[in-house]
Computed example of a mutant assay.
Amino acid sequence: MTQDIFSTQDELRDLIDAYAYLGDEKKISEQMRLFTEDAVYQVYMGDFLVANVSGTANLEKEFNGHAALVKTYFTMNGQHTVHVGEDTASGISFSQIKMIREPEGKRNITDYSVRYEDQYVRQNGKWFVKERIGYFVIIEERLLA
């Protein structure tokens, strides 16, 4: 591997980590800057497509609506494998996401085990997410003590 490939891998890892950090902090408008304007974001829960959003304006509305229902997010990123072209790349990453909600005054925690399949594009020397598909493979919800 060349130094350019290593640098690109680091940049792409930083991109998905920034996505997690900003999401956990509910900095949605800043998170949108990680996507291309025409980005596509899809979510599967098991075999069912539950979200299919295009464009950062629509995506920001969707994320803000969801964030309003969640008191606390906590994300841990795991493996991240990428295949790099000149100005495009694809990647698979894994995340554990915890969300605390308080419906009816009760604290519930939901644990999500997620596999993301991403398409990235480099524009003006910077990498962005062009497409992100989240596969929520394991979902566990329980009352938080």
Rank of each mutant, 00 (worst) to 15 (best):
D4H: 11
F6T: 15
F6Q: 13
F6S: 13
F6R: 13
Q9S: 12
Q9T: 12
Q9C: 09
D10Q: 14
D10S: 14
R13G: 06
R13M: 13
D14E: 15
L15M: 05
L15F: 03
L22C: 06
G23L: 12
D24S: 07
K27M: 10
I28R: 06
I28F: 08
S29K: 12
Q31W: 07
Q31R: 15
M32I: 03
M32D: 02
L34T: 10
F35V: 00
F35H: 01
F35P: 00
T36K: 09
E37R: 12
E37F: 07
D38R: 07
D38Y: 08
A39N: 01
A39M: 07
A39W: 00
V40Q: 03
V40E: 07
Y41G: 00
Y44H: 08
Y44A: 05
G46Y: 09
G46V: 09
A51T: 08
V53A: 02
S54H: 12
S54N: 14
T56Y: 03
A57S: 14
A57T: 14
N58K: 11
K61V: 15
H66V: 14
A68L: 09
A68D: 14
L69A: 14
K71E: 13
Y73A: 05
N77K: 12
Q79L: 15
Q79D: 11
T81R: 09
T81E: 09
T81Q: 13
V82L: 02
V82D: 02
H83D: 13
V84C: 07
E86T: 13
T88Y: 04
G91L: 00
I92W: 01
I92F: 04
I92Q: 06
S93A: 07
Q96R: 15
I97D: 01
M99T: 09
I100Y: 05
I100T: 14
I100N: 07
R101Y: 05
P103S: 11
E104Y: 08
G105K: 11
K106Q: 15
K106S: 10
R107M: 12
I109T: 11
I109Q: 14
I109A: 10
T110P: 03
D111A: 12
Y112V: 03
S113L: 10
S113D: 06
V114D: 01
V114H: 01
V114A: 03
R115S: 04
Y116G: 06
Q119D: 13
Y120H: 02
V121D: 02
V121I: 15
N124F: 04
G125A: 10
K126E: 09
I133M: 05
G134I: 00
